[in-house]
Amino acid sequence: MGLLSNVFKRNTGDATPQKPAVVKTDAAEQLKPKPMNKEVKIVAKKIEVGYVHMSGCTGCLVSFADNYDKLFTILDRYVELCSCLALIDARHMDTMDIAIVEGSVCIQDKLSVDEIKETREKAGIVVALGGCACYGNITRFCRGGQQNQPQLESFVPIGDLIKVDLYIPGCAPTPQQIRNVCVMAYLLLRGDDKQKELATAYLTPLMKLAQGGTEACGCDLMTNVINQGLCMGCGSCSASCPVRAITMEYGKPNIERDLCIKCGACYAQCPRSFFNEAIISQYEAIDDAVKGALQ
C-alpha cells in the first residue's frame, strides 16, 4: 500500500475508526483536536528519518521535494519521515536512524544549540545537508547587529558542535544526490551483505568529506587541488559553482572570492578531490540500482 492510499484511507476513516469521545458537555473541550492514533507502519522495515531545520533557508528541503514523484516512492518504501517541522506536526524529536540536518547553528541561540545536541543523541547517523550545515555557507558572513536580535552573530556548521557522519554539500544540494543518499542509506541499514557493501562504498567519500572538516571555499581549489599538483583543467568546478564565481582562464580555475559564498560544491564536485574509481566506473549499474529502487 502506498503512502497516498494510506493517507486517503485515514481521511475516509476506514483505517482504525476512532472511538467517539467520552461524553463531554464542555463545547470548548469538544473543539480540541482529538489525539491521532499513531500511523500504522505499512513497510515495517523503513528507516526512520528526521529532518532537522537549523539556521537554513529550507532550500535543502525543497531540493529533497524536487525529486517529485520519486519523493513519494522514497517515503512509501524506504523512509519514514518521523520529524520535519515544515511537513509534519511532530513537535519533538524521537529516536531515529538518520537525522538530516539543514542549516548552521547560531551559538547565541540556546534552543538551536540544544536542538543540535539533541539531534546527535537521538540519531544513529547524522547527515549534514547543504552548504550551511556542512560548511556554514552564507552564514559564515553573519556578524550580528540586526534587529531584533542584534546579538545573534555567530553561526557555526553543525560539525563544529557535534560529530557528523556524512556530508551532502552544495547550495542547494541536488535532488539527485539526496535521492542517492536516501536509497544508499536504506541499503546500508536494511540491505543484505552485498547491498551493504555497495552502500558503504558509495557513501564512503561523503563520509570522508565529513571527516575533512567544516571549512569550505573556492580557495579549496587552490589549496587542495592546484597547489597539490592535481588540477587538470576539466572545468567541473566552474560548472558546479552556484554563483558563477569560477571561470576557467587558460584552462585553470580563476576564483572570484568576493562572489564565493563558501558552499563547498566546487571542491566536492572536482574529480580530483575524491575519485573512487571502483564506484564511479560502475556509473551505469549505480544508476540502474537507484532508478530500479525507485521504479
Binding site: 566536492a268 564536485q269 575519485f275 564511479i280 544508476d287
Partner: peptide, 9 residues
C-alpha cells in the same frame, strides 16, 4: 562523477 555524485550539477 557528476552523474554518480551530483553535488553541484
Amino acid at each position: 562523477k557528476g552523474q554518480v555524485y551530483p553535488i553541484g550539477l
